[in-house]
Amino acid sequence: MTSEHDAGGTDPDVTGPPEIGRPETELVRIWRSANVDPALEYRIEETLVSTVSGREALGRSVSAERLEVNRLIVMGLAAAPRRGRLERLLVRLGVSDSVARLATATPALRAAWLLATALALLFALATASNSTASGLDRVIVYLTIAPLVPLAGVALAFGTAVDPVHETTVATPIDRSRLLLIRTMTILVTSIAILVVGGALMGGPAVAAVAWLLPALAVTSGAIALSPRLGPQRAAATVGAVWILVVLLVGSVSGHSAAVFAPAGQAFWLVLAGVAAILVDRQRRHSRYFEA
């Protein structure tokens, strides 16, 4: 026995010839020398990796510090959720690593949300094709549901219970409100893409494909403005309920179910979205988590 530090178990006690000058270590020395041809090099490697002692001898030719640094990196990366396709795309487009990670780790982008959106759109499609009404009234279900899609996304985008990168979020030197905006943008872009396609399938008037845009902006930014007070989920639920009530109420009073999407209504949603945006911006200035 040559040294004591092996007491922890690096020496094999099961196989291998007796420890005369450590044959594995000697073999590694020969393997590392320049004058081993590739075939012999490979045979030596296969011989060494076939036993634990051989593997350990090979491993000892690498510095412990180097292995430790790599170990920390591997463990750190394993702790983080994996980078998805969308995230890779964003990084390739020049978005910084951390922003891409936080934007796409948005839980709302997950399959459940997309599935719910798809189901809602199918439902809207079914009602639209059975409807006898004309104009925007024909696609009223679609128009009412559409603003709820980004709203639900935003509600899910924040909160410890549903967030797989919550720890990353807290540990990232981006203030929370900016993060919320990054995620909201991701959600809005995704929603708009889905909803415009869905709207085109509805078969209503062309304006139907975009009539929900301003209401969507208004309810989403309204929910964000309320979330510091109510929490994101409750804020979204409240705003969503108010939205449905308003659509139903205005619809029944005016006799046109899609009245809130008329030009006057659109102007109102635009103003509301603007007010909410100003509120959000003000909150953002006052709530920088990481400012010195």
Binding site: V28, R55, L58, G59, V62, L67, R71
Partner: peptide
């Protein structure tokens, strides 16, 4: 268990 030999090879 495995990083050492893998790195070396």
């Amino acid at each position: 268990r495995h990083a050492g030999w893998l790195t070396a090879r």
